[in-house]
Structure formats: structure tokens, C-alpha cells
């Protein structure tokens, strides 16, 4: 799985992109977030307020109930502020 982080989510995790192999019991975005939060303090901080963090799977916005697998590109970021 390729995971990308943007803006202050990236600053908190300390990485902009990483390749990870997640355990078989990680079925949804929500499972993935719980798994990531246990990795380090930075990840726990990035997801401290989960309601604020937006997620995209394969470059489409999804909810935390969306399925994920090791073949996916998953991105976490704050609400967008372009324009």
C-alpha cells in the first residue's frame, strides 16, 4: 500500500509518502487509521482529531468505512484550501 500525507498531516507524521504492507485484518480506512496511530507519537498526533482528516483512496474522496487493500494508494490530508 502506498500512503501519502499532505499539509499539516504530513508535518505531524514526519513523512510525505511511504510503502507499507498492512496486516490482513486491516479492511477499512478506519482500521488503517487505528493501525497507523499505534506506530508513533507523530501518527497519533496527526490523527488525534480524526473527524478533521480527509481521506482519498486511489485519488477519490472516500469515508472511513471505505475498503482498503495493499494494492491501494491512500492519502490523508486536511480539508482543502485551494482557489
Amino acid at each position: 500500500m502506498k500512503i501519502l500525507y499532505f499539509a499539516w498531516v504530513r508535518e505531524k507524521t514526519g513523512v510525505s509518502a511511504e510503502e507499507v504492507t498492512v496486516p490482513a485484518d486491516i479492511a477499512t480506512v478506519s482500521d488503517l487509521v487505528d493501525w497507523l496511530k499505534k506506530r508513533s507519537g507523530g501518527y497519533a498526533q496527526a490523527f488525534a482529531d480524526e473527524a478533521v482528516v480527509r481521506v482519498a483512496v486511489n485519488q477519490e474522496y472516500v469515508s472511513v468505512a471505505h475498503a482498503v487493500s495493499n494494492e491501494d494508494e491512500v492519502a490523508f490530508f486536511p480539508p482543502v484550501t485551494g482557489g
Binding site: 499539509a7 499539516w8 474522496y61 486536511p78 480539508p79 482543502v80 484550501t81 485551494g82 482557489g83
Partner: peptide
């Protein structure tokens, strides 16, 4: 186009202000 872009296109603004660097909030 501009209304939809502002809430759907994945851009983020980091401002360099007199109070330091600040991410713009939606």
C-alpha cells in the same frame, strides 16, 4: 467552477505571516 474547486481540488495553503507559518483552515 471556482466554488467547486475551492472545496474539492486537493490544494493546501501555508501562509508565512508576522505570527509565523500557518496552514489556512477551510
Amino acid at each position: 467552477l471556482i466554488d467547486w474547486l475551492k472545496t474539492k481540488a486537493p490544494f493546501w495553503k501555508l501562509e508565512d505571516t508576522t505570527a509565523g507559518e500557518q496552514w489556512v483552515t477551510a
